[in-house]
Design a protein around this nucleic acid. Structure first.
Lengths: 339, 339
DNA sequence: CTGAAAGCGCTTACAG
DNA sequence: CTGAAAGCGCTTACAG
């Protein structure tokens, strides 16, 4: 039904191989036949069957992207589309396309990764979920299938990954609070499974330490990173009468929830309590007061992930790349007293 | 390098075709050979090369999804991931995967669609951009390539599409305002190219008409649907001294911008001016006051789009499906005086 | 129930 | 500069 290279060859009175060479822009083909064949290709409305050429070439120019699904709601988090955008735009430059799949739970994710890494479609994988001790990752390493993580894994040497400098930016952010006279600064949203939050927590701890402020355990609130639970976390702190003047939340959603609670309690921001979040979502600038946040440059993370993956696929050297994207504190009214 | 069907056949002492039948779960194969072959497949860690089977089968079980890129920022809009999620989860049930591509501008989008529709990878396409008079759409129709639009097109008969009942939900929303005594209701964000906004505008107009309220042209503000320009739109209205007590914005972002301006001007919401948005983004519930919005059920839109596409690919009948997903008004403090 | 053979549509040494 | 042939890894009538 669809017109093939053979149809074109017949009409053009050449061998199929010649048509193939014209398509591939092979240099040693006479300009006349080239033009003639090209004309006929146009006329016959021929389009290359990429699947067939994949098989012959053993190259698909497709990479797989695995994101989390419904359950964790991460797909709905504003930074995910940004990451995807970064990946696709960089991939496009290299002539690559993205096969996107989402997994609802760990089990599904494991199956997904297992098939994506062996069914011959994807040449490499980008994973957006970096948990502590992920079995899928070990599997990929064993298979020597090229992959890149967005988010530093716990055992980080023999793996390609991109991440922000979570430790140092949180250090800076904490210093920003301390510099304004805050001593009692809460830290919301540490989760022992999610490495980003642990890195941020370390930065927070170190900044306190360097400023001679003792870490107060009851200022540190555990909780799911992407949960909408900032309201409850903050309520819990306030209702327990914990003394504090500053709040650093591991995510804007958490910070926004906290702001909502504080507003309801008639507490002024930033006069009574200063607050900051992470990920610089649109929520941050729209918040009242506007929320200080950390711009993680999600699209740059995505683009860098693709670059690492590209090298992993094409360079035989077998070394591993780690790219650190500097995050940036965006100061807004919520954390600046003189605003 | 990778183990093939022939390797397995050799070890199992059967023909490659037998191995193929075992993999395909072909019924007429003896249980003994089946089990023996399956065992060897496991042992040798054989994985089917899907690309080869694509070629032999003439079926890829992949559909393409085209979204807008950087320029229009739509990819960053919270409903886009929701749509993608709906598509992927439904596709997963049918064993399909999604190849996602983003286009930065109309030209790129045209090229993208042209290659996706003819390179043999995707069996069908879902498009998220429905503009007035899209040349790509005409092209696809001419090629008879299966595709579905998310968002009703202007010439809607011979095309598969899914959409909300934008007219009637906006009618209801406007009635909700009128029911609370509002007569001067502004409408923000009509754009002549974007059909959704036109449909919503019609619903607004009809509700006014049915209530005997005359349409005031200077209460209707044009503007890009996804722009962050609600602040400016509202400022313009206020500075011109336009008399109003209600605002319906075609998108939450626009509504949020308007709220920000109103808050700065010391205008109380909803006491002085009531306001509502569309798309029920997380922003809406986090807003202060919480923003009345319209839940468009983006993931259901996505899922339905896949279902239509699946039929378009597999049913030969050549008829066209139109699915309308009822949107739902979520009443919150911003539009309810007695709250 | 199983095998030999042709075919899916392309690519690429090899020979001339 | 061009063609004939083998091959990429699978599938599927056809024959037995």
């Amino acid at each position: 039904m669809a017109v093939t290279i053979n149809d074109v060859a017949r009409v053009a009175n050449v061998a199929p191989s010649t048509v193939s060479r014209v398509i591939a822009n092979n240099p040693n083909i006479s300009i006349e036949t080239k033009e003639r064949v090209q004309k006929i290709i146009k006329e016959m409305n021929y389009h290359q069957n990429v699947i067939a050429s994949f098989l012959a070439n053993r190259s698909t120019k497709i990479i797989g992207l695995v994101v989390q699904g419904v359950t964790e709601k991460a797909f709905g988090h504003p930074f995910m589309p940004e990451i995807i955008r970064g990946i696709t735009s960089m991939a496009h430059k290299f002539g690559y396309r993205i096969l996107i799949s989402s997994a609802e739970d760990i089990k599904e994710e494991k199956e997904l990764i297992s098939s994506l890494s062996s069914d011959g479609i994807a040449e490499g994988l980008i994973l957006t979920t970096s948990r502590i001790q992920d079995p899928s990752i070990e599997q990929l390493m064993k298979q020597k299938f090229p992959f890149v993580l967005i988010g530093r894994p716990s055992d980080s040497e023999q793996i390609n990954w991109v991440d922000n400098d979570n430790f140092s930016v949180t250090y800076e952010l904490t210093k920003h609070f301390i510099g304004q006279g805050h001593r009692k600064i809460a830290f919301l949203g540490v989760s022992s499974e999610i490495i980003v939050t642990l890195d941020r927590y370390e930065g927070y701890k170190k900044a306190l330490e360097d400023s001679g402020i003792e870490l107060e355990p009851n200022l540190v609130v555990r909780g799911k990173f992407l949960d909408n639970s900032g309201y409850d976390m903050m309520k819990n702190l306030m209702d327990r009468g914990v003394d504090l003047t500053g709040v650093i939340a591991c995510d804007d959603y958490i910070a926004l929830g906290a702001i909502k609670l504080l507003t309801e309690y008639g507490i002024r921001i930033p006069e009574d309590i200063a607050i900051a979040g992470f990920n610089n979502t649109v929520l941050a600038e729209h918040s009242i007061p506007a929320l200080t946040s950390v711009e993680i440059k999600a699209s740059v993370l995505g683009a860098s992930a693709f670059e690492l993956l590209y090298h992993a696929i094409h360079d035989q050297r077998g070394d591993f790349g780690h790219t650190i994207i500097p995050a940036e504190i965006i100061q807004r009214a919520s954390s600046i007293r003189e605003f």
